[in-house]
Nucleic acid binder design. Structure first.
Length: 274
DNA sequence: AACCTGACCTGTAAGC
DNA sequence: TGCTTACAGGTCAGGT
């Protein structure tokens, strides 16, 4: 579910909630969520006694920095964290529980069970396969026009699909891909390599601006997203095309169209995105 | 290498 | 009211 703005909002909540807490016990109710180490008993044992010192983010990944290890966590479509007292009743979607020495617990809940966690030795997290291939963060310093032009050269696949893989830049998912392409006035099915330099620069500006603005608003809540404090985002109130099929385009008033592109619902204005 | 299609899961809403 | 189908903020293994 969450894209960069939502994950960053979760990160900020978690930073305020769990930094300084020491893990006393771990429970796992759905083994497939734990990627490594295997078996899950190892994952649990290694966490015992470690204190959370920092919560960072890279793309859509959350990174919990502990004494010896880094817990890498991806929420995928429906993952959520929450801090509760240890006597609060579990729900049917509570899959991983971190009990702390102070009597509270961090809970990972995930209706679809798509989320994944890995525990890696501190210092080796950048080499982990979930991190090693990631593109730059969407900032003016990291995401340069030169990089984007090089990356996109000769690419034949649709620009929307390129935005969704995390190599050109990190953090974009299905909502923000549509919003960014609308802002940049680029049709989602244009081959990546066919964009002009001006269009690539427009894409760069749109990506940085929209992801920053959405982060400022705590992300978008379309169905179920909440941060670790239980708060919804408000950026959905500013969506121009996502979820707006049939509505008039905010620029030209022609109806917004929804198509399926590479298996993903895709919203755009056929009139002003060429 | 580059690209596309299922598979992973469950819940909700729409269609009949 | 039921039953069936499509769809959902993501990624990856496997195939062409």
């Amino acid at each position: 579910m969450p894209e960069l703005p939502e994950v960053e909002s979760v990160r900020r909540g978690l930073e305020a909630q769990v930094v300084g807490k020491t893990i006393q016990e771990v429970q796992v109710y759905w083994d497939n969520i734990i990627e490594s180490p295997k078996p899950v008993s190892q994952f649990k044992r290694r966490l015992l006694g470690q204190t959370i010192h920092q919560v960072k983010r890279r793309g859509k990944l959350l990174l919990f920095y502990l004494d010896q290890d880094v817990l890498i966590s991806h929420l995928r479509m429906e993952g959520k964290y929450g801090l509760l007292d240890q006597d609060a009743p579990l729900t049917k979607h509570s899959h991983v529980i971190f009990n702390f020495r102070d009597g509270t617990q961090l809970r990972y809940e995930d209706v679809r069970k798509f989320g994944r966690m890995s525990l890696v030795e501190k210092g080796k997290e950048a080499q982990h396969k979930s991190l090693a291939q990631l593109g730059p963060e969407p900032t003016f310093e990291d995401l340069t026009l030169e990089w984007m032009l090089t990356f996109l050269a000769h690419k034949t696949r649709a620009i929307k699909s390129i935005l969704l893989d995390q190599k050109l830049l990190v953090g974009v998912g299905n909502i923000y891909a549509d919003e960014i392409l609308f802002q940049a006035r680029i049709q989602p099915d244009r081959p990546g390599g066919s964009l002009t330099n001006e269009e690539v620069e427009a894409l760069r500006q749109a990506a940085i601006k929209i992801l920053q603005e959405a982060t400022l608003r705590g992300g978008s809540t379309v169905r179920s997203y909440k941060n670790s404090l239980g708060q919804a985002g408000t950026y959905q109130d500013f969506h121009q095309v996502y979820g707006k099929e049939g509505d008039p385009c905010p620029r030209c008033h022609q109806p917004i169209k929804k198509i399926k592109l590479n298996g993903r619902g895709t919203h755009f204005c056929p009139h002003c995105q060429q």
